[in-house]
Computed example of a mutant assay.
Amino acid sequence: MIVCHCNAISDRDIHAAMDWMRAADPETIITPGKVYRALGKKPDCGGCLPLFMDTMGRSDSLEVPLILRNLRRTQPGRTAK
């Protein structure tokens, strides 16, 4: 399914880019901008962003890496809000 008509990006392209980023760096935070850059594209009108984000949300690669979870609670000298 085409997600971004301006750049002809499909849901498969998004998932493949996310899987590639996660394999290349297991600790990376994946954002829509990083997906666009990984595909060699730039966002244009932004009309696709809700569908783009929904497509990203369906990928297992989107999870925050374990090492980056709960950082606020584990830093000494800081109190959690």
Rank of each mutant, 00 (worst) to 15 (best):
M1C: 12
M1F: 03
M1Y: 03
I2H: 02
V3C: 02
V3H: 05
V3A: 05
V3I: 05
C4W: 09
H5P: 11
H5I: 12
C6R: 07
C6Y: 10
N7D: 08
A8D: 04
I9V: 09
I9D: 01
R12H: 12
R12P: 07
D13I: 07
I14M: 13
I14T: 06
I14A: 06
I14V: 11
H15S: 08
H15N: 09
H15R: 08
A16D: 13
A17Y: 08
A17I: 13
M18L: 04
M18G: 11
D19M: 08
D19G: 09
D19I: 06
M21I: 02
R22F: 02
R22P: 10
R22M: 06
A24M: 07
A24Q: 14
A24P: 09
D25R: 14
P26T: 08
E27I: 04
E27C: 02
T28A: 00
I29N: 02
T31I: 00
P32V: 00
G33W: 00
G33N: 03
K34T: 05
V35Q: 04
V35I: 05
Y36V: 03
R37G: 00
R37A: 03
A38S: 12
A38I: 08
A38G: 07
L39H: 03
L39W: 00
L39A: 05
G40L: 11
G40I: 09
K41F: 11
K42W: 12
K42V: 14
P43C: 04
D44K: 15
D44Q: 15
C45K: 06
G46Y: 09
G46I: 14
C48W: 07
C48Y: 03
C48R: 02
P50G: 10
P50Y: 04
P50F: 01
L51V: 06
L51F: 04
F52H: 01
F52P: 03
M53K: 10
M53A: 03
M53Y: 02
D54S: 05
T55S: 05
T55I: 07
T55L: 03
M56F: 01
M56K: 01
M56S: 00
M56H: 02
G57Y: 01
G57M: 01
R58G: 07
S61C: 01
S61P: 09
L62S: 04
L62E: 11
E63L: 14
V64C: 11
V64N: 00
V64H: 06
L66F: 08
L66H: 10
L66A: 11
R69H: 10
R69M: 15
L71A: 09
L71Y: 06
R72D: 14
R72L: 12
R72T: 15
R73Q: 15
T74Q: 11
Q75N: 07
P76R: 05
P76T: 10
G77A: 02
G77M: 00
R78W: 13
R78S: 14
R78Y: 13
T79Y: 12
T79P: 09
A80W: 14
A80N: 12
A80P: 15
K81Q: 14
K81V: 14
K81E: 13
